[in-house]
Every structure is written in C-alpha cells, then in structure tokens.
Amino acid sequence: MRITVNGRQRDVSSEPVKTLLHVLREDLGLTGTKDGCSSGDCGACTVMLDGRVVNSCMVMVAQADGASVVTVEGIATGGQPAEVLHPLQKAFSQCWSFQCGFCTQGMLVSCYDLLQTNDNPSREDILTAIAGNFCRCTGYQAVVTAVQQAAAEIRTSDAGAQNERA
C-alpha cells in the first residue's frame, strides 16, 4: 500500500484492517495524532484524508491506499530548524487554546480544514467545525479566539501578497 503522508510518499506493509491511526503512530512514527477513545467519539485522532477531516481510528489503512493524508505534523512548513509555524499553531499557543494539549492535534487539523474554505469564520462556523473534537481541559472559546486570530493573519498576509503582485 502506498499513502502520501504530509506530502511524502510512504510505502506501508501492514494488515489491511489496521487503523490508519495505528499505522501513522506505530509504523510511520507520527505520534502527533492521538488515540483518545478508538471509537470515533473524541476526535483526538483527526487527520485529513484526501482533503477532508476523518477520525483516523475509524479508517482501515487499506481504505487509505493511494490517498493523501495530512496530520498535525504536516501543518507547519519548512521543517526543523527552519520550521515556520502555521498561523493557527501560533494562535493556539498564544491564546491558551489548550491546556493538556492531547486534543490539540486533532483540533488543529479540524480548524486547518475549516480555514481552507473559509477565511473569515464566525463563532458558529468554528464550533460546527470542531463539533467532533472533545476538549476536557479548556472548552472551546479559546479555540474560537485563536482561529479568528489566525484567519485574520492569513487574510492580512494574503492581501499583502496580492498588493505585491499588483
């Protein structure tokens, strides 16, 4: 099986019914994606599969054969040490959008997905996007704040880039 993970092609030899979560964590060493319940109830394992958020604990790896996966490790750009954090990642840190951080990786992927199609999300848009992501420490307001802050930053930098082209 072949899966493109965070832009990189990975060959996977695993039992077909192993979960994508298991393969990401155990075979590919991408432990940023978390296992909170193994039953699709908490969203800690959220990744993007062919451009849409899914619970990786509920996807058999064979279902992802040939697909493209983005995990939390694929949100920043540049790689260490020149890593550039995504505006969402910076905003989550600044706004205390998490405490223990165990839900954060999945939460970030859901918010990252939202910002692909909505550059100015309302509170309701954000809460709807994270309606499958459970946070026990903080709740969700600080996530709303962070996503709106990140969206504003992205809009500003997009506008800047357009002005430069013009």
Partner: peptide
Amino acid sequence: RWTSSPGATDIVTGRARYCPD
C-alpha cells in the same frame, strides 16, 4: 502577562511525547 506554556510549540507541532508516544 499572558505567557505561552513552555511546551506549546511541541504540542502544536505534535512533537510533545505523552506516555503512549
């Protein structure tokens, strides 16, 4: 003053290691 946690970058990049990791 609002201060980000010392582990914040590890957490938002997925590098933070919890027991299962």
